[in-house]
């Protein structure tokens, strides 16, 4: 294959930056949407009426036991056949990742809420707080602190998983690199470069998580 030629990376930087832009956008939308939907799912499972709780549990369990690639292909290829409303690659990716991450965030949030001893709610109620006040002022602040590092870890996984939009041809960082690699016939350099970018970003984020853990006193064991 000859010597490495990094010139092609330099020449393609604008497109790689665009691709990274979509990767970040996808992560941000799935994070925001996933947190909102995930909170709803968690609340439905913890204190919703029974049919709703069951439906939420079924949703979460199905999403969590199917490979992400399959979910992406379902949303992109199969569901539009039934609904007659295709979304296009980018929108389809945004919807898929939001729906998928909601299941994972939902479980983390549920565990976070359930980690708060019941007695705390009882005590807050005894002090005269309403149920909503108890949830907002007593349960959630503690729950958020407990689950923040786990949520962040899941977000790093999400950031990496967005590369799977490759399966439907959405132009994220990996895809932009692949196209450039093909145009200049330098796929090896492009793949190595992409790996390095992902590695740098994810390592920085996971160091941040570790610092956060130490700061919040929820250090991981060992």
């Amino acid at each position: 294959m000859g010597a490495f030629d990094w010139q092609v990376v330099w020449a393609s930087l604008p497109y790689l930056a665009q691709g990274l832009g979509f990767t970040v956008q996808l992560t941000a939308v799935a994070l925001a949407g996933g947190l909102v939907l995930g909170t709803l799912l968690a609340l439905a499972r913890i204190s919703g009426p029974r049919p709703l709780a069951l439906a939420a549990a079924a949703y979460v369990n199905i999403m969590r036991s199917v490979p992400l690639v399959m979910v992406i292909l379902w949303f992109f290829l199969v569901i539009p056949m039934l609904t007659g409303r295709p979304l296009g690659t980018e929108a389809s990716a945004l919807v898929t990742f939001t729906a998928f991450e909601a299941a994972y965030y939902g479980e983390i949030i549920r565990a976070g809420i359930q980690s708060i001893p019941r007695g705390q709610v009882d005590a807050a109620r005894a002090l005269g707080l309403t149920r909503a006040q108890a949830t907002i002022h007593v349960v959630l602040p503690q729950a958020v602190r407990n689950m923040a590092p786990v949520l962040l870890t899941q977000t790093i996984i999400l950031f990496q998983d967005t590369s799977l939009v490759h399966a439907i041809g959405a132009k994220d960082l990996l895809k932009a690199a692949e196209i450039a690699g093909k145009n200049y016939n330098r796929p090896v350099e492009m793949y190595v470069f992409v790996a390095a970018v992902y590695f740098a970003i994810c390592l920085a984020l996971s160091l941040l998580v570790r610092r956060l853990r130490r700061a919040s006193g929820t250090a991981a064991p060992a």
Binding site: I156, S163, L164, P187, V188, A195, Y198, C202
Partner: peptide, 22 residues
């Protein structure tokens, strides 16, 4: 651990398939 945890699986597949043999 850091190396294999911080690169997306799909990218790792491409590295193993296209880059390592070179």
């Amino acid at each position: 651990v850091e190396l294999f945890r911080n690169v997306p699986l799909l990218v790792q597949f491409f590295l193993w398939f296209f880059v390592v043999p070179e």
